[in-house]
Amino acid sequence: MSDSNTTDFTNPSTFILLGIPGLEAAHVWISIPFCAMYVIAILGNFTILFIVKREPSLHGPMYYFLCMLAITDLVLSTSTLPKTLSIFWFNSREIDFSACLTQMYFIHCFSAIESGIFVALALDRYVAICHPLRYSTILTNPIVAKIGLAVVLRGGILALPYPFLARQWPYCRTNIIPQPYCAHIAVVNLACADTRVSSYYGLFVLFCVMGLDVIFIVVSYLEILRAIFSLPTMDARLKTLGTCSSHLFLILAFYIPGLFISLISRFGQNVPLHSHVLIANVYLLMPPMLNPIIYGLRTKQIQSRLLRVFTHEGA
């Protein structure tokens, strides 16, 4: 008698998401920090959007990019966390095949968009520090809109082959995905076919997104550092460098774990599965939670507007 582990099918009607394999008994406890991080991400990113929309003085390139980042973080976290929490709380493990492919697309699309926005923020810092007198003429609203559109189109187009590649493979081994969401590699690893095309395409996207974006960011910051060290006083250097600190911290928090997870998913056979899955889940949650906190705490304009809103409402 066949079961869900051995049933022959080409396209399964559903996949079974296991959550975090090996830590099922701790799912309820794990859900507490996950839920807290999700709530912080939702509140923080909506706050950024509210403050920028409310204050005309914040209607500038950097804050437009921050709004794009906030929207991206909201979509990225919401594409995975509600289903993850339903697994942890209600043992709701089934996900429709088409819904799984849709979730896969959103994860990879908005991860690529987030990377592109970090590049746009690096460009903003480069122009602001290296060409301050030409800032308003270089980063005009039409240019910002074109940059935003290019970032969204790049992410959307590069992620589009993921669900189409995953749909074409025959799935005759199992329909059980050993994690709480449908990542591309996790799904195609279930196929009973030669899926090297999917693996090679994943590496190609990793290079096109993280590889090229990191190169662009490094080149931008080399120019920024050269401009900073040409300033006459140490106080001026530290003050200018401080305007980049938020961006630098979030870049490290986004790219280093992302590169680590991509590598161990392909080559880390000796890494315990539950450790890999737990790290991957935290990675998807950390940027949406950290971005509004770091930019909110480190950006004086946002701080002052936020305080003004609360003091005005409390008065």
Score class of each variant (00 low, 15 high):
97 F>M: 08
52 V>Y: 05
118 F>V: 07
104 M>N: 14
65 F>G: 12
165 L>V: 04
144 V>S: 10
80 T>E: 03
91 N>P: 01
98 S>P: 00
77 S>W: 01
90 F>G: 00
162 Y>V: 07
104 M>E: 13
115 S>P: 01
153 L>I: 14
184 H>L: 09
107 I>P: 06
108 H>L: 08
169 W>I: 02
167 R>K: 15
86 S>H: 11
89 W>S: 01
105 Y>H: 09
139 L>V: 05
180 P>T: 10
86 S>A: 15
86 S>W: 11
147 I>Y: 04
106 F>P: 03
52 V>T: 15
147 I>W: 07
122 A>S: 15
63 Y>F: 15
106 F>T: 12
53 K>F: 11
181 Y>F: 15
101 L>Q: 01
69 L>K: 04
134 R>S: 12
140 T>W: 10
75 V>G: 04
113 I>M: 05
102 T>S: 06
120 A>S: 15
72 T>W: 00
176 I>N: 12
196 R>N: 14
80 T>Q: 09
160 L>K: 04
168 Q>I: 12
74 L>A: 10
119 V>M: 07
170 P>M: 03
117 I>Q: 05
156 G>C: 10
79 S>H: 01
115 S>F: 04
126 Y>L: 13
92 S>C: 06
163 P>T: 03
176 I>T: 15
78 T>M: 02
141 N>C: 05
91 N>R: 14
104 M>K: 08
